[in-house]
Amino acid sequence: MLLPAALYFALCCFGIAVIFATVRLWLGPSAQDRILALDTLYINGLLIILTLGMELGSLLYFDIALLIALFGFVGSAALAKFLLRGELIEP
């Protein structure tokens, strides 16, 4: 009884956190703020997927979370690098 309640509580927390990050993504004001919000969004998505995996008792969600971690990092790093240089692949 305790664990399902904690799972729902954590899911609610992550959901509200996603809303906050989305508001920051919407408001900006600068490009680096938006990238920071996107970075936070993928971390929150990963945590939601892990929590859902616990709730549904399936090990498959682990692989999805691993993929989100991999691609989220690549995306955020590429966006930040783009701000830094204006191009992604340097000659």
Binding site: F14, A17, L36, I43
Partner: peptide, 19 residues
């Protein structure tokens, strides 16, 4: 597990509130 979930949920929420 329940304690860890509650703690990390609160911390993540506070982090996004700071954002």
């Amino acid at each position: 597990a329940a304690l860890l979930l509650i703690l990390s949920g609160l911390l993540t929420l506070i982090g996004c509130l700071g954002l």
